[in-house]
Design a protein around this nucleic acid. Structure first.
Lengths: 156, 156
DNA sequence: GTGTAATAAGAATATTATTCTGCTATGTAT
DNA sequence: ATACATAGCAGAATAATATTCTTATTACAC
């Protein structure tokens, strides 16, 4: 039998902690920290990838280096029916859109976007969002300062 | 002279694109795609790291594998004075908090949290947030479905 | 021209990744 | 209890990669 599809043991968690902290850590480094053989670590990492526990690896780039210093959240009311995420997919297809969430309470979406400046934000709204059907209203909130921004999940 | 502190050329951008897409890509693989020597790529990657263009590398972990399936945004009004981010730092120190933004318009914070379920969210509010001084009010918005969630920046 | 700095290639070496084999523990069916 | 299958890990051998160092080239300032 196998029922370990969803179960992570302590070794898995330790690996995830290390790779979440530094995705470019070597297998050898992991194996030393965990006092295991590199081959055993490799096997576990592969299984974590195969099982979809690890979805991928990303480099975190400084937004200002790419002249993308303006972060904003846009609340969008849409005429999409229940279970229909047509406009959500359209939002997601825009490169400047980092996140699209269907939020409770107001039958609307919360969209996180990152652009160069307020002018670019205006252009994004006019040229990209305005083309998307079903949008009833948009409310934009601009971020003045970001104190913390990670995707890190606390592994206990 | 050197004024390249902030300037990225096409090679840099190509490297960033590749590493943003897959942070565990090898130097050799990058060098083949870019038709360069591995040593040259390595030198550029190191400089990107040193200059802070690349802030780090992260493994993207499936939240449901870690039983963190509830995402929520909390809008917090605080009595912090201007330029004072005492409570923001307190928010950032909480492991379940993934993002803390100082947003315009309502002298308040937008905090993104990831927890197991609604019960855990309640506990987080009671045990962690309620201890933080200066909080005037909190409004929580629960995410029902996430259509897109990345930190990826479009590199043009 | 001359010097300097940045950039990249190439070769040599160190380190790591990967594969494969075998061992052990665990659980299951007979 | 015995036999069998499976998961997990270690160890060794080999393939691949990372890293260092040297050299060449270019661009640019003086």
């Amino acid at each position: 039998m196998m029922q370990n599809e969803l179960v992570l043991n302590d070794v898995d968690k330790a690996i995830l902690r290390l790779m979440q902290d530094d995705a470019r850590i070597t297998n050898v480094a992991i194996s030393k920290k965990l006092k295991m053989a590199p081959s055993a670590v490799l096997e576990r990492v592969r299984k974590l990838e195969e099982r979809g526990v690890i979805k991928g690896y990303t480099a975190n780039i400084n937004p200002s280096a790419l002249n993308k210093e303006l972060l904003a959240f846009i609340f969008i009311k849409s005429a999409d029916g229940f279970g229909c995420d047509t406009s959500a997919r359209a939002f997601a297809a825009i490169p400047e859109v980092q996140e699209v969430h269907n939020i409770a309470g107001d039958d609307c979406y919360l969209v996180k976007v990152r652009v160069a400046n307020t002018q670019a934000l205006m252009e994004l709204r006019r040229k990209k969002f305005s083309k998307i059907a079903n949008i009833l209203s948009m409310r934009t909130t601009i971020v003045m300062e970001t104190v913390k921004e990670t995707q890190t999940i606390s592994i206990t």
